[in-house]
Simulated assay, not measured.
Amino acid sequence: MPVKAYRCGAAALAAVCLAAGLAACGEAGESGASRRGGPTIGLLLPDIQVSRYETFDRPLIEKKVKELCPECTVKYANAKGDVAAQHQQVDSMITSGVRVLLIDVVDAASLRSSIVKARDAGIPVVAYDRIADGPVSAIVAYDLVEAGKEQSEALLRALGDKARSAQIVMLDTPPVIQETVLRTKGSLSALQGKVRAVRTYTVGALGAERAYSGMSDAIADLGADNIDGVVASNDLMASGAISALKAAHISPLPPVTGMDTELTAVQRIVQGEQYMTVYKPYKPEADAAAEIAVLLARGRRINHIAKDQINSPTTQGIPAVVLTPIPVTVDNIKDAVVKDGTYTIDQICTPKFASACEKAGLTY
């Protein structure tokens, strides 16, 4: 299989947390209790600000592990965006004797030493959703170059004939972060030569508040009438950008694209405030990660599942499952996120959005 060109510079950016103290390190818990003393799989997720991790990723992974390995135990912790907490959680997982560690890193470069420590303890590490530095055994993630490309291509469709003269604002995190490099590469490749200019505003972290500040800077620099479209790293940042545009009384709003398909983003799309989000279906990613983790826990090969390869800044040819993201606009919400059960019509179409939903054809 061809090696995915996922290469970028390393990101610049502990005490052991005992089982009794794991809650202080990130809402730790266990599920799928062992029936016959089977292997334990450690699951570490990065934050609670983005709703997907607690709402989708954790329960889906736990469910799939239970289905594939009834005797397995899943030991869980969430870092809540804290690199130091995730270091402590890795230490705790090693101390408790997990057979495999499934981790979505808060920061790839900063967690490298912990991944090396796990490897040295004989524990295979599977990077989930984000590429991790260090000696990982496998990666399960979506193609972020394609995701960035989908964002920009959607923006071009929204602009139509106005694209050639358009000034686009990109709101992104620092380019030392691998995901930023990949997403930006895809976005710029789609915009190159098709718009008048792209102005990038770098914010310190993913989040609505930082994006609001970055978008406010863009409005002050470029002028309220000179912003024709916005590409935001994720839906939280799209939310902040939209709030800043509205605070500046810019109407109609320019098309804004995001990523992650937060429920609030879907509702903004229905309402016409956000143009598009990139959907990375949670179940295929969670299922693939769980299957790889169970196989590694049982000492089995994963090459029949991890058929792709990814190069990280530290390791070449890592076995991987690379999934294809889906662009979502008002035209395909029902087919994309309702049909597969991510959200129901009732969840999307609360009374506040009822008339917009009816107009968009979001009815049973």
Rank of each mutant, 00 (worst) to 15 (best):
D221I: 05
D221M: 03
L222T: 10
G223Q: 11
D225M: 10
V230H: 08
V230D: 10
A232T: 03
A232S: 12
S233P: 00
N234M: 02
D235R: 00
D235P: 03
L236S: 12
M237N: 11
G240M: 04
I242P: 00
I242N: 08
S243F: 07
A244M: 01
A244K: 02
K246E: 15
K246W: 01
A247M: 06
S251Y: 10
P252S: 08
P254W: 05
P255V: 09
V256F: 05
V256K: 03
V256W: 01
V256M: 07
T257D: 00
D260H: 05
T261F: 01
E262K: 03
L263K: 09
L263C: 03
L263E: 11
T264G: 09
V266K: 01
V266M: 12
V266W: 06
I269D: 00
V270T: 07
Q271P: 00
G272W: 12
E273Y: 06
Q274D: 10
M276Q: 15
Y279K: 08
Y279V: 05
K280C: 10
K280I: 03
P281R: 11
Y282D: 13
K283I: 01
P284H: 10
P284C: 14
E285N: 11
E285T: 11
E285W: 03
D287Q: 14
D287F: 13
A290N: 09
E291G: 01
I292P: 02
I292H: 03
A293C: 08
V294T: 10
V294P: 02
V294F: 01
R298Y: 11
G299D: 13
G299V: 04
R300E: 15
R300D: 12
R301D: 15
R301T: 14
I302A: 10
I302C: 08
H304C: 03
I305Y: 03
A306F: 10
D308Q: 12
D308Y: 04
N311K: 11
S312K: 12
P313D: 13
Q316R: 15
G317M: 14
G317Q: 14
